[in-house]
Design a protein around this nucleic acid. Structure first.
Lengths: 235, 235
DNA sequence: ATATTTTGAATGATCATTCAGCAAGTATGT
DNA sequence: ACATACTTGCTGAATGATCATTCAAAATAT
């Protein structure tokens, strides 16, 4: 089976490298033959996000990811066992990054509920998170999530804690000022609006991060008039 | 070229038919050999929506669509030239259906701006439009839209008129009652929220159409307190 | 020397597309 | 009526392209 004598493999070791990788001149390793397993995995995950953003989920191939990372064809199956694993690791990475980001914003904010709510909304439109590149990648996963329990679980896990936090904050504000809504409903509307704004940001049009953020703020102001102004939380 | 003399084709005309088609005893045509071209195209579009909903964009194959329609493998390329065309026709169909639906709701509503706005929001959560099946299909296209100008154009065309309508209505309400927002921003927030609610409906969880609709209504009430109540538009 | 990482050609699976032929319908002639 | 040719919708096996995956050999590190 599959007689396969070298005799050929020889030849071209031309190292036409230099190809793409229009980024990182490296932190330390990156380029060299050795690069800690974790570093290489991270590099491949980043290339995957690029590919998802540029070509979409359906058109993302391992060859494209490998090229994007400036590495060879077999590399993904060496570091991640399969394409599926690579995609899961990519989604996992984005979910972790997102969770870390909003938690930090929450912790750093003034502990008043109004301030925290304001901070969470601002975090969603932060340049670190809210990049066309990353929004496109999120959207690619959303598109497949319905038919893939694994994706759904990862996207869902992101939401559960996040939305619970919103519900608590809305409940606090309601207790403070006696607004006439259900906290769950209000939190749902808020979170849904931010996701919808992300979707539209991704779609292109003329929408900018700033305009989207203003729309979200306007919602805060109209929903919590006793706590919010266009310039920030009251008090 | 392709020298290709019969000599072989002969043989097996066994007609193992009877296979699938576990459905429609037919309205009139459907099953029979004849069925107006338009009917058959429609049937294939429906099967495509099913497949998108069940297996996602990336896993939707022509074989799956053909099986779903209870027809043979080559059928799609006969009626639509290519897979791409089938998908475009499917998106086109959904976009048309959506536009027709909300326009009708708009026209039928009481001409007061508040009533029309209420009607448009209600239309988005109507059982005719807001099905898990269709939401999943929309979402599948959204996921690919960033990298496909054609899809983007079709999704975008849907939005332009729709959002302009919202802007006008918001402007009217502002003129009537002197709310302190920009109509464009408010319309954006509203439309984005409804899309976000669709996204979440599709994702499953415990969210129901009714709960989503209530969340949207709550937004209307808090944004237009002088015009809206939880039960409907005032006046 | 041994172990680890990387390469890239070969393999095999999946799938869109093609197309020769079949069958149902229609038109025309007798 | 029946036979004939012609049109059109449909079928399903064959074709070829794309791509994930494998793995022997090569490069590099320890």
């Amino acid at each position: 089976m599959s007689l396969r004598l070298g005799l050929k493999g020889r030849s071209m070791a031309l190292k036409v490298k230099a190809a793409s990788a229009a980024s990182e001149p490296a932190d330390a390793d990156r380029r060299g033959r050795k690069a800690s397993k974790e570093t290489r995995r991270q590099q491949l995950v980043e290339a995957t996000i690029d590919s998802l953003a540029k070509r979409g989920y359906a058109e993302t191939t391992l060859a494209d990811v490998a090229d994007g990372a400036g590495l060879s064809r077999g590399i993904v199956n060496f570091h991640f066992e399969s394409k599926e694993n690579l995609l899961i690791a990519t989604l996992q990475f984005m979910a972790d990054e997102y969770a870390t980001h909003w938690s930090a914003a929450y912790d750093k904010a003034d502990p008043a509920a109004a301030s925290r709510l304001w901070a969470l909304v601002a975090a969603d439109f932060d340049r670190k998170i809210c990049t066309k590149r990353k929004l496109a990648a999120w959207c690619a996963f959303w598109g497949e999530a319905k038919s893939r329990p694994t994706y759904q679980a990862l996207c869902g896990a992101r939401d559960v804690k996040y939305q619970e936090t919103f519900v608590s904050l809305c409940a606090e504000l309601k207790a403070e000022a006696g607004y006439g809504y259900e906290p769950e409903t209000m939190a749902l509307a808020l979170c849904a609006m931010m996701e919808g704004l992300w979707l539209r940001l991704m779609m292109g049009d003329g929408l900018t991060r700033e305009k989207a953020h203003v729309a979200a703020i306007q919602h805060l102001v109209s929903a919590f008039p006793k706590h919010m102004t266009y310039e920030g939380p009251k008090k």
